[in-house]
């Protein structure tokens, strides 16, 4: 398969989030949006216009924001707590643990501009630790959709799910990958391409890159399986074990530190159930330097070509 000649249309997943949230709020008066002066960056402008009384803007106070979310849920509201992922998860982690996960509060966390979406603003504004911080908590599904279709599906799912969860969204444009009408299933990976030589696993902004990498590998005679794994917890053990047994090698790629994220979650399953050679791509345990998210992903070895090279090298390591 040749790589596409023209670039596909890219979409900001925040728009799908905002549209879906507004539709949910129109149908359900208990839906509220909570934010920390992030109306613009969380794309809550439309929500504010349509449901002004249901936008709870606490100002720049993330700990209070998450606690207020827990209290709103206790009072029968359905809060979507929206903030830049770096501040939401970093500043309010103890509230996420005690007030939401441990208390089982029905609060939906929406981390906006995750990963290195705020690339040039520097590591204070990068959120490449959030998978590690959140996926260690019991009772908190962690989800990073790959495109606008999966984002909308995940937001709908979150509204119907009785319990806390963390949706990790980006603002970096991504092409459509999943079919229109896709229904999100928690903890279920999506097979985007089948193959028997190696498995590529990613989520969020990396899924379209591994899809392209699989095309490059095919030209080199390597048949790669491609899994979109939006749910980091609970991880899809069945798909991972099958990938290990049927393809014998697994590569992961994520807009996150290589420590504690998707790659680590996959490796934990592989080590326990079906050890095979693995390669984890991500930010290599450093504070990233200045640049756009796309540039930084490229520099950290996650261009489709570099992913394909890493996968080909991995295939060589198979026994």
């Amino acid at each position: 398969m040749n790589a596409p000649l023209s670039s596909p249309k890219l979409f900001d997943c925040r728009d799908a989030f905002a549209e879906t949230l507004e539709a949910l709020a129109a149908a359900d008066e208990t839906v509220v949006a909570v934010c920390n002066d992030s109306v613009g960056s969380s794309k809550l402008g439309g929500f504010k216009t349509k449901f002004p009384e249901r936008l709870v803007n606490v100002g720049i106070a993330e700990q209070n924001m998450v606690g207020v979310g827990a209290g709103l849920a206790n009072g029968g509201r359905l809060p979507f707590v929206c903030a830049a992922a770096c501040f939401l998860t970093g500043r309010a982690l103890e509230q996420i643990k005690a007030d939401l996960a441990y208390s089982n509060a029905n609060v939906k966390l929406v981390g906006i501009s995750s990963g290195m979406a705020y690339g040039e603003l520097g590591p204070t504004h990068h959120s490449i630790e959030d998978f590690a911080w959140t996926r260690v908590l019991p009772n908190l599904p962690v989800i990073a959709p790959a495109d606008r279709i999966e984002t909308a599906a995940a937001v709908k799912w979150a509204a119907s799910y009785a319990g806390p969860c963390f949706l990790r969204l980006s603002r970096v444009g991504v092409p459509d990958l999943l079919p229109e009408g896709h229904v999100f299933e928690l903890g279920k990976a999506n097979l985007l391409r089948d193959g028997g030589d190696v498995t590529l696993i990613a989520n969020g902004t990396l899924t379209h890159r591994i899809v392209t990498a699989a095309g490059i590998l095919a030209e080199r005679g390597i048949a790669a399986r491609v899994l979109n794994m939006a749910t980091v917890r609970p991880i899809d053990e069945t798909a991972i074990i099958a990938a290990a047994r049927e393809t014998g090698a697994i590569l992961t790629a994520e807009e996150h530190s290589i420590f504690g994220g998707l790659g680590s979650a996959v490796a934990e399953v592989v080590v326990d159930h079906a050890p095979v050679p693995m390669k984890r791509l991500g930010v290599p345990g450093v504070f990233a330097h200045t640049g756009s998210a796309e540039m930084l992903l490229d520099e950290y070895g996650m261009t489709p070509a570099a992913i394909a090279d890493a996968a080909a090298a991995l295939v060589q390591r198979k026994a």
Partner: peptide
Amino acid sequence: HGLPVAVGMAKAAKLSGA
């Protein structure tokens, strides 16, 4: 932790009319 959560509870009552 308790006071922020209590603020949310009170705000919920304001929204719902409870």
